[in-house]
């Protein structure tokens, strides 16, 4: 498929099944017309429809909404939020700051990098267990591949205040018995029973629910992209309207230099 002949076929046009804009007329969004077929659709439902090409039940939508809501922390100390806040303090633009803060959220120890490994592990492990595998082997293999079990343990504190409210919401919606969320808890029990003090974190819970909602790792990754967003504008705004350059000021003594001593150029 590669090569200049293939590129020539693709040049100058957009061939797509996803949709398009017909100026002055209409917009097609994955086979539906945006301003008629989808005009009453909730924004999050549309976002998911754009990713998955399918619609979710009201209960599923409420759960997914809660997954985002319960991780919306307006705390400018948190690394990704701090980027949004620093953009306000530095008098950059809101779009630049928020976009950078969302980019930063694709991290290894939290956010997308953590979740994409977690959902992939849950899906693969569920399949292995269904075909006779055992959990200890799955965990050992995952440790060998990634040197961690994504979704277990937490950078700042080994407990996660989001889990209980998410589970309460899932229970109220009748969505707490999915096979992957049950697996997520079974893994936590296994880790604790084997002497590893690694409690489940938000990444594991949301990833397990993503798998239970039959999202692929790629679909789930895209779904989670705005998950931290709601906490960011407050961080930006407060810094934006504070004294410029006054957020987290660092004096020379706040920098611990550990390099070579003075030398001549």
């Amino acid at each position: 498929m590669n090569g200049p002949d293939y590129l020539s076929q693709k040049a100058g046009k957009l061939q797509t099944a996803m949709g398009g804009f017909f100026p002055g007329s209409h917009v097609v969004f994955r086979g539906q017309t945006l301003h008629t077929d989808l005009k009453d659709m909730d924004w999050m439902a549309l976002y998911l429809y754009g990713i998955c090409g399918r619609r979710f039940s009201d209960a599923e939508m409420q759960l997914m909404n809660a997954l985002w809501t319960y991780t919306s922390y307006p705390d400018a100390r948190i690394w990704n939020n701090r980027v949004a806040a620093l953009s306000g303090s530095a008098r950059s633009t809101g779009n630049l700051g928020l976009a950078a803060a969302l980019s930063i959220s694709e991290a290894h120890i939290y956010g997308r990098g953590n979740e994409v490994q977690a959902i992939s592990f849950f899906i693969a492990t569920r399949k292995r267990l269904d075909t006779g595998g055992n959990l200890a082997d799955c965990l050992q293999d995952e440790m060998k591949t990634h040197r961690r079990i994504a979704g277990y343990g937490r950078p700042l504190i080994n407990a996660d205040e989001r889990i209980a409210p998410i589970m309460a919401k899932a229970t109220a919606l009748g969505l707490d018995q999915g096979r992957h969320i049950q697996l997520a808890f079974a893994i936590e029990r296994h880790l604790l029973d084997s002497g590893r003090n690694l409690r489940m974190n938000y990444g594991a819970v949301v990833s397990a629910f993503g798998a239970d909602l039959e999202l692929s790792p790629e679909e789930f990754y895209l779904f989670m992209f705005p998950s931290f967003l709601a906490g960011m504008p407050p961080c930006f705004l407060e810094a934006r309207h504070g004294v410029e350059g006054s957020l987290f000021p660092l004096s020379c003594t706040d920098i611990a230099y550990q390099g070579v001593g003075p030398r001549r150029w």
Partner: peptide
């Protein structure tokens, strides 16, 4: 360039 649009199948987007 804005490029031309070829909608391959406008009913196949929804799964």
């Amino acid at each position: 360039p804005f490029f031309s649009l070829e909608l391959i199948d406008d009913t196949n987007g929804e799964k």
